[in-house]
Design a binder for these strands. Structure first.
Lengths: 181, 181
DNA sequence: ATGTCCATGTAAATGGTTACATGATTCA
DNA sequence: TGAATCATGTAACCATTTACATGGACAT
């Protein structure tokens, strides 16, 4: 449901081609709404049909490598995006196979065997956290209080940091609990 | 992918009927792997075919209200569940329409209009948090250090608490940022 | 007897994942 | 010239959501 708006947002920030979008998703907006290039191309199709984006004129006649089809947001698209941003939603439930695994291990009396699984979860969460922190240092080290856009982008990154921190902390706590018993 | 194991876990903890499972999902294991009754019935079907659960004999001949079909985990099912709990997975990405909304509002220069959306998110996150804390008070007030099962169940609840806390904190921070600018 | 809830489903639509296909272009 | 990469897709599958269907039981 939100994918189309994630794409509209990305194209509002800067127009681009399908593949560019796919790459941006891999390293920025996709942190909170992941998507593959297949999804993106399909959605670009839909958005075009709905008149929310349009294909920009190309230099050469035919699209090709180095000269791909590029898309921009139409005025209707922008209005629709602004409307959507104001809408109230329901928070996505926290889905976690790790929580299910732990409960499964508890139910079957094999709690200590879940340790590797937990350690793997912790390492991956920590890797996410480190990645976010590097971005923070690189892009948000100096603060200009008058730059609201910059501050908001930082704020979104902080969401990732705080949620991943909660996860890492929880994994450590749980591992300690397993060691104690 | 994890739904089948969530069901196996729930049936390991206690055998039950489809509707009972649906209700348990609404108020316990489903906090970390939500499922509707339609999904559950379909999956019970699959699990039965795969020999991981079996239908328990009924009192009366025909299932009916007050005497529904009941399911239990087979030995194979239990083994499969224990195996799965040991497997390593990839953490589910944090998906959040709220983060996309905020970024959309920033990109379109309508940041202050996202305030209601954020307040709504905060209230719902806080409601989740309160619910979890009530369960904690009710079920985990007294600690028996020798009861590992109890401790692990508490730990799973704490995951929900800590993640929702991170969310509520982030919403407050973001609202403060919007007020300041 | 009628309406409501229980228990179990079916069906259609949407969303997401995985695997593969294709032509074109740059690079070694 | 052959390999790798770019850019754009198709197809099949799996998971999830939403809406509806059914028949029996219970309550008024």
């Amino acid at each position: 449901m939100s994918l189309k708006f994630a794409i509209l947002t990305s194209l509002t920030e800067r127009e681009g081609s399908g593949i560019e979008l796919a790459r941006r998703f891999d390293k920025s907006i996709g942190y909170f709404w992941p998507a593959t290039h297949q999804q993106i191309y399909r959605e670009l199709d839909h958005l075009g049909t709905a008149g929310l984006i349009r294909e920009l004129p190309l230099e050469g006649a035919t699209p090709s490598r180095g000269n791909p089809r590029r898309f921009g947001v139409t005025p209707e698209g922008r209005v629709r995006l602004e409307e959507w941003a104001r809408e109230l939603g329901t928070p996505e439930p926290v889905k976690s196979a790790m929580a299910v695994r732990l409960r499964a291990a508890a139910a079957t009396g094999t709690a200590h065997e879940v340790r590797h699984s937990l350690e793997s979860e912790r390492e991956q969460r920590r890797a996410n956290l480190d990645r976010y922190r590097q971005i923070e240092e690189r892009d948000f080290a100096d603060v200009d209080p008058s730059d609201t856009l910059h501050a908001l982008q930082h704020q979104i990154l902080k969401l990732g940091i705080q949620v991943e921190q909660a996860w890492v902390g929880w994994c450590d706590e749980t591992l300690a609990l397993l060691s104690a018993s």
